[in-house]
Amino acid sequence: MIDRLAAFLAMGGHGGFVWGAYATAAIVLLAILAASLLRVQREERALQRLAEAGGRRGGRARGPAGPAA
């Protein structure tokens, strides 16, 4: 069992290349996904805050001094 797992991980002596390729793909794709999710969360939250602030001021929207998009 352990031998078979070791053989699978070794990938015929090219394990570093094969797993390196899959790891690169996983890291890049997950990083982009995470960055996009964070950005959606940040922007939509800021928009909501802005809309609420605007509603309280009787229709006049006024933004907090947060970082501009």
């Binding site: 959606v40 939509e44 800021a46 928009l47 605007g54 929207a61 933004g63 998009a69």
Partner: peptide, 22 residues
């Protein structure tokens, strides 16, 4: 991910317009 980013971009633009209007 494209849909997610479009959502973020649309929100960012709305924020910009609201700030400009304010």
């Amino acid at each position: 991910v494209l849909l997610l980013r479009v959502r973020a971009e649309v929100a960012a633009r709305r924020i910009r317009t609201l700030r400009l209007a304010a």
